[in-house]
């Protein structure tokens, strides 16, 4: 019970403390308007090139909309502690660091889910995509799985912040790479084999595939393998993040480089 409290309450407190730079206007501009414009850009580009129909881009970009908030959020969960000079206090805690940092991903994943749902709604209304009502619960699951996987992916990048000084370069590049390799905008069959291979182990790829199947009315049964794959990718990043945090924490203590900026 106390571990659960650490994960939920601790995560919520850290979210409020580390996400303090935002305001309602900035939130709407950066996290709601930005992804919607991105969706429109690729939908119109897709229309012009006749690569795929609007649904392909609307659903794919809606799933991807969570990535900025979740990847940067997961990174912030570690990197901003260092920036604000509070990382030492967190690492002095007698509780499990793994539980502390995993808990921090949850609010960002929730935020990502909200953004993805907004983008899907806005994209569908603006471009006239009809999604079967029966598909909505499954779509919610797919968006949640994608957000969670992205959050743990961001935490993995944030863990690198204990070792490297400028982790934001890695996060920015990672978000751009997700745009290319997850098959959200370029159909995966059109990508070279090695890009498809890398895409398999990135978050969003399988969630987008599941969401497209669900939006096409194929049902949860058809989307289940892709959903499971996305959850496995997320779990994999959660484990990698925990291992990296443990390793880099030990190294930072040994080299006295914990709060070096």
């Amino acid at each position: 019970m106390s571990t659960l409290r650490l994960i939920t309450t601790g995560g919520a407190l850290a979210y409020r403390a580390l996400f303090n730079w935002t305001s309602p206007t900035m939130y709407a501009g950066t996290l709601l308007a930005g992804p919607t414009f991105q969706l429109l850009f690729f939908a119109y580009l897709g229309r012009q090139l006749r690569v795929a129909d609007d649904g392909f881009f609307i659903v794919g970009n809606a799933v991807l909309a969570a990535s900025s908030a979740c990847v940067f959020g997961g990174t912030m969960a570690v990197a901003n502690e260092r920036r604000y000079g509070t990382l030492g206090h967190v690492l002095l805690s007698p509780r499990s660091r793994t539980a502390i940092f995993w808990g921090r991903v949850l609010p960002y994943a929730g935020n990502g889910l909200l953004i993805a749902a907004f983008t899907l709604t806005a994209g569908s209304l603006l471009l006239g995509l009809r999604i079967p009502l029966a598909a909505l619960p499954g779509l919610g699951l797919a968006l949640a799985a994608g957000s969670l996987a992205c959050g743990f992916f961001g935490l993995t990048l944030g863990a690198l912040g204990l070792r490297f000084r400028d982790v934001w370069v890695v996060s920015n590049v990672a978000v751009a790479v997700l745009l290319l390799l997850t098959g959200v905008n370029v159909p995966r069959g059109e990508l070279p084999q090695w890009m498809i291979g890398v895409g398999h182990v990135l978050p969003i790829t399988h969630a987008a595939e599941a969401a497209r199947l669900l939006a096409a009315g194929r049902g949860l049964g058809a989307a289940a393998p892709a959903l499971l794959a996305e959850l496995l990718v997320g779990a994999g990043y959660a484990i990698v993040a925990a291992a990296l945090l443990k390793t880099f924490e030990a190294e930072s203590r040994r080299r006295a480089s914990l709060e070096t900026l």
């Binding site: 012009q48 090139l49 690569v51 400028d166 370069v169 920015n172 590049v173 751009a176 990508l191």
Partner: peptide, 26 residues
């Protein structure tokens, strides 16, 4: 390093995506 790294990588990623999209569009 932040500005330089992003300036080096992001345009190349965008160009790669544009090329694959235009190829996919025949």
């Amino acid at each position: 390093p932040f500005e330089v790294s992003l300036a080096l990588v992001i345009p190349v990623v965008q160009a790669t995506m544009a090329v694959h999209l235009f190829r996919a569009g025949q």
